[in-house]
Simulated scan of single mutants.
Amino acid sequence: MNAEDALRGVLFDKDGTLFEYHGTWAPILAEAAEVAARGQAALVPEMLEAIGYDTSCHRIRPGSIAGGGDTFGLVDAWLTIAGGWERAALIAEMDGLFVRLAPERSLPVTELPPFFAGLKDRGFVLGIATNDVEASARASLTRFGIDGFVDFSAGYDRGYGQKPGPGMALAFCAATGLAPHQIAVVGDNTHDLEMGRSAGAGLNIGVLTGTSGHDDLAPFADHVIESIVALPALLDGLTR
């Protein structure tokens, strides 16, 4: 592999990739539904089912709004069930709740500072692309001590569009001076891998710490690994 073709950047999804998805987001979304229902507790199970939260087992279905969507999709689903909100007001209410709760309650899949430091030591430029709100992403990076390792971050509201569109991956490339074929995209959802493919990423890697199984990810991924813990060894093997 010559220098121009070598992988030089890694763009991570956040939830389900750096943080365990079900344990982090199932309780947050349940609380969010209660807020959006405005005291109409009987509506909450229907609201959760509408976004792909399986209330029978407290798991989030792959490919659902809850599993990979953004606040716009969540709010639009809930407004069909729970009235009494202006769309913009409910978006602001939900994003505010996510900014407050996600950094506090996120469950990292590994010790993130040494993991990111190891990738930096290997010479990689690092980024985060999430369908969460940008302020929540930045607060989570600070909370877990990895903001100093991250060269780029974008949420759904940053202006680059939402996954599965290519905007956040292309913005990472533009911000860091890398060509798309020089980056790897790592995510737990087909939305992440579709973003990478549509942007022309050199490598798309699925992880199994989110809502998707191996069979969900394999058609879109060059590699599927158990978690980001296996990523350094994979990258080392590919770049030798």
Rank of each mutant, 00 (worst) to 15 (best):
A175Q: 09
A175P: 01
T176C: 11
T176L: 10
T176P: 02
G177W: 06
G177H: 08
G177Q: 06
G177E: 07
G177L: 07
L178N: 07
L178I: 07
L178W: 09
L178A: 05
L178P: 02
L178S: 05
P180N: 06
H181V: 07
H181T: 09
H181A: 12
H181Y: 10
H181K: 14
Q182L: 05
I183R: 01
I183W: 00
I183V: 14
I183A: 01
I183Y: 00
I183E: 00
I183K: 01
I183M: 08
A184V: 01
V185G: 01
V185Y: 03
V186T: 06
V186W: 03
G187H: 05
G187Q: 06
G187W: 03
D188S: 14
D188I: 14
D188W: 13
D188M: 14
D188T: 14
D188N: 15
N189C: 10
N189V: 10
N189T: 15
T190A: 12
T190R: 15
T190P: 14
H191C: 04
H191L: 07
H191G: 07
H191P: 00
D192W: 11
D192G: 13
D192T: 13
L193E: 02
L193T: 02
L193M: 02
L193Y: 01
L193W: 01
L193F: 02
E194Y: 00
E194H: 06
E194Q: 15
E194M: 15
E194T: 13
E194I: 15
E194C: 10
E194R: 15
M195P: 13
M195E: 15
M195G: 13
M195D: 13
M195I: 13
M195T: 15
M195V: 12
M195A: 15
M195W: 12
G196D: 09
G196V: 08
G196R: 11
G196C: 10
G196P: 04
G196S: 11
R197P: 01
R197N: 02
R197K: 09
R197V: 02
S198A: 14
S198K: 09
S198P: 00
S198M: 01
A199L: 04
A199C: 05
G200T: 10
A201K: 00
A201E: 00
A201N: 00
G202L: 03
G202S: 05
G202Q: 04
L203G: 06
N204T: 08
N204C: 15
N204L: 07
I205E: 03
I205M: 06
I205R: 05
G206D: 10
G206W: 10
G206Y: 11
V207R: 10
V207D: 03
V207N: 05
V207Q: 08
V207L: 12
L208E: 11
L208W: 10
L208Q: 12
L208R: 14
T209D: 07
T209W: 06
T209L: 08
T209Y: 05
T209A: 07
T209M: 08
